[in-house]
Structure formats: structure tokens, C-alpha cells
């Protein structure tokens, strides 16, 4: 079997005395969609944030497309990467936040073009053309010159997705992308993510949208108290959960 796109091995992470991740092992193959479910405080978001090194792990390791995240191995030692190298790694891992985190003082187009211009040093003309294409793809071609505050939550999140795509990442991470949205705006964002899934983008999505998981996920992972309780095809985990914790959680959200 080929190496997985994402390989998480025995990852532990604590904040002070609180152990948030208690030994996580996870593999995600290229082109697959993994949906992570679980109650709040189960460590889902922290796991996602360790994958692009927004959080450092305490022990264990993570690799993306064969490259260690945040470290370089040489001989019998692991060397911590310099910030510049970490930033370079992150350009290959797109991250979409729950609160969008668009840059409010930049227009939609500038938001999308910023990272390709400054992090990858792409030529301006090509970058702006590409940004417009991406906006068209998320259905917001007419909003290029708007500021984020002039958009609805759903539109802002679609811009944030276009911004992540602009770096042409190998992997997309979504941290509860619809949790901050009004209910009627959830659908438009999920549609964009589904569309990406159909095109074979490798994604890890932390969400509470069970319907989305059932429809789009190749693998569903259920986490609780910093551990992966069970994982498998959506049909198995969602319809025939084996673990009591999973059953209890699903009975509450379904």
C-alpha cells in the first residue's frame, strides 16, 4: 500500500494539566474525505490544528505526503523546523476556520491573492486571474471588490475556502466550517465542500453535520476525550456504531 497523505502516529497533546489528545493514530489516503465527529472538548479541533502545526504535539509525530510536519529527521535526532520552513509547509495544507478569519481590511480578491503573492511569490497578473476563477467556482464572481463585512456568513466562508484553495494545497482541513453560520446558510457552504470532494480533494472535516458526513465521507472518525473511539465507513459508524459512546452521541445529534 502506498504511503497515506496524512499519517498521524501516537500523538499526545496537553494544555497545562489537561490532556487533550491521548494517543491518536489516524491515516488518510489521498483523494479521500475524512469526517471527524465528537462532542465538544473531545480534541477534534486540536487534532486538526496539529496537522498544520498551529499546535505543536507533545509526543508522537505527523506526516503529510511523506514529510514530517514541523520537524526534520537527521541521524537519530529530530530537528525543529525554523518558522520560515513551517510557513512553507503550511502553504501545502489549506485550513478553513470556524470563524472564517478573513482579513477585514482587504477586499475579497486581495484576501484570496495575498498568500499566493507573498508566500509563494507568484506573479501578480496570474494570481489575480486565478483568484477570480476561484471566486467564480464558489459562486461569488460578483463580490471580488467587496469587503468581508459586506458579505453574509455563508459568503464569507466560501471566500475563506477560495482563499485556502488559492495555494493549491495537497490537503484541506476544515474546522467546523458551518458552526458559526445561520442555519439557512449552512447548505451553500456544504455544497462547495461536496463539490471539492467530488473532484478528489483530500480533506479532513471536523463538523457536527451528520447528514454531510453520511453523504460525503469516505471515512467517519468518532472522537471522545482525546481518543479515537471508532472509525470506519459512514454506513458502519453512523448506522451500526459498536461503541457505547458513539451510540450515545449519535442518539443525541440525530
Amino acid at each position: 500500500m502506498s504511503t497515506p497523505m496524512v499519517d498521524v502516529k501516537a500523538v499526545h497533546k496537553s494544555f497545562g494539566t489537561l490532556e487533550v489528545l491521548r494517543g491518536i493514530d489516524l491515516e488518510v489516503r489521498a483523494g479521500e474525505v475524512t469526517v471527524v465527529l465528537g462532542p465538544s472538548g473531545s480534541g477534534k479541533s486540536t487534532l486538526l490544528r496539529t496537522i498544520n502545526h498551529l499546535e505543536k504535539v507533545d509526543s508522537g509525530w505527523i506526516s503529510v505526503d511523506g514529510a514530517l510536519v514541523g520537524y526534520r529527521s537527521s541521524g537519530d535526532k529530530l530537528y525543529e523546523l525554523r518558522e520560515r520552513e513551517v510557513l512553507k509547509q503550511r502553504t501545502q495544507i489549506g485550513f478553513v476556520f470556524q470563524n472564517f478569519n478573513l482579513f477585514p481590511h482587504l477586499t475579497v480578491l486581495e484576501n484570496i491573492a495575498e498568500a499566493p503573492l507573498s508566500a509563494l511569490g507568484r506573479p501578480r497578473k496570474e494570481t489575480l486571474d486565478n483568484a477570480r476563477r476561484l471566486l467564480d467556482r464558489v459562486g461569488l464572481a460578483d463580490k471580488a471588490d467587496a469587503y468581508p463585512k459586506q458579505l453574509s456568513g455563508g459568503q464569507q466562508q466560501r471566500v475563506a475556502i477560495a482563499r485556502a484553495l488559492a495555494l493549491e494545497p495537497k490537503l484541506l482541513l476544515f474546522d467546523e466550517p458551518t458552526s458559526a453560520l445561520d442555519p439557512e446558510l449552512v447548505g451553500e457552504v456544504l455544497d462547495v465542500i461536496k463539490d471539492l470532494a467530488l473532484q478528489g480533494t483530500t480533506m479532513i472535516v471536523v463538523t457536527h453535520e451528520i447528514g454531510f458526513a453520511r453523504e460525503v465521507a469516505d471515512t467517519v472518525v468518532f472522537m471522545d476525550e482525546g481518543r479515537i473511539v471508532e472509525q470506519g465507513a459512514p454506513g458502519d459508524v453512523l448506522d451500526a456504531p459498536r461503541h457505547e459512546r458513539t451510540k450515545a452521541f449519535l442518539s443525541k445529534v440525530l
Partner: peptide
């Protein structure tokens, strides 16, 4: 800052 860091924008 987190978004900027996640996008790999230089420090």
C-alpha cells in the same frame, strides 16, 4: 495572525 500563519504568509 492564526489565519495568516495557516496561509504561510511570511512573518
Amino acid at each position: 495572525l492564526e489565519a495568516a500563519a495557516a496561509l504561510g504568509i511570511p512573518r
